[in-house]
Design a protein around this nucleic acid. Sequence first.
DNA 1: TATTGTTATACTCTATAACTATA
DNA 2: TATAGTTATAGAGTATAACAATA
Lengths: 157, 157
Amino acid sequence: MMEPEKIPEALAKYPGYLLSRLGEQARKRFGKAIAAQGMHPRQFGVMAVVASRPGITQQQLHELTGIDPSSMVAVIDELEAAGLAERRPYPLDRRARSIHLTEHGERTLGRVREVAAELQQELFAALSAEERERLHELLRKMAGAGAAAGDGPCKQA
Amino acid sequence: MMEPEKIPEALAKYPGYLLSRLGEQARKRFGKAIAAQGMHPRQFGVMAVVASRPGITQQQLHELTGIDPSSMVAVIDELEAAGLAERRPYPLDRRARSIHLTEHGERTLGRVREVAAELQQELFAALSAEERERLHELLRKMAGAGAAAGDGPCKQA
DNA sequence: TATTGTTATACTCTATAACTATA
DNA sequence: TATAGTTATAGAGTATAACAATA
């Protein structure tokens, strides 16, 4: 169990600060939780998007995850090396690469999703189920999220 | 104006992810906003705590901000070099150093607080005033924040 | 001429370990 | 023996610039 660190009022009064510090904490704890599966938060993010849009290109992955194109190369390299994903030719544009999860990748993603769900329970333990839902809604709204024009598999898949 | 980046449903469904990504975004935007004053987010955090607890030691600052003690040295060095804060002997324990803001530091902090307030408006623009307040409460609760045992000036000040 | 992916590189931020002076 | 601060160093993580293939 990790102590959630006390945040002094002088800083807690800034919602942006809370967002930043709690976000960093969430990322770190998630990273530790999935390290056992040999996975990294960035890899999880990419895999989750690929799972929802099989055949997506690296450029599109960059736009959706916010990960820099040059860093994206490294992430996909790692996933390929671990046998979790693979690059395939992208028929519509021969410059681009089409990314797919392998079967092993699908299974691993499933396990990591379970770990993520367990961690969520811990992370938001101070909140009631209702409060968690409310917080989630507010964060979604802030992110302008919810069905980012074209969720679902890509053409060609 | 910075586009708030669209977050796909495949990731937005994880509240921890939203927290992490929105937090990172908040930090980056805040950093850019205060760079004009020659300030860094870490420095602001430390200064805000020092302002609320004049005479605080570096060790205590580390506990309250989560910044590593060795990094704290660098932050205070920067603040001293910029004439924003200063180290003084700490009578109760000669190993420790007592940190205080200079007048220039107080004034600068005041200006940066204004910038922070403006940025907050932008950052949470997608939310109504009520929703912002609700989000702030939920984040506070999550952080176990609110009057961290001993807010206020330190003895000896 | 612009874009996708790639490579090499630099830069920022943070963490680790060892040292000093006090306790 | 343990702790506060310091220093030097190493490691993540990320961003920047230049290049090849293709559009």
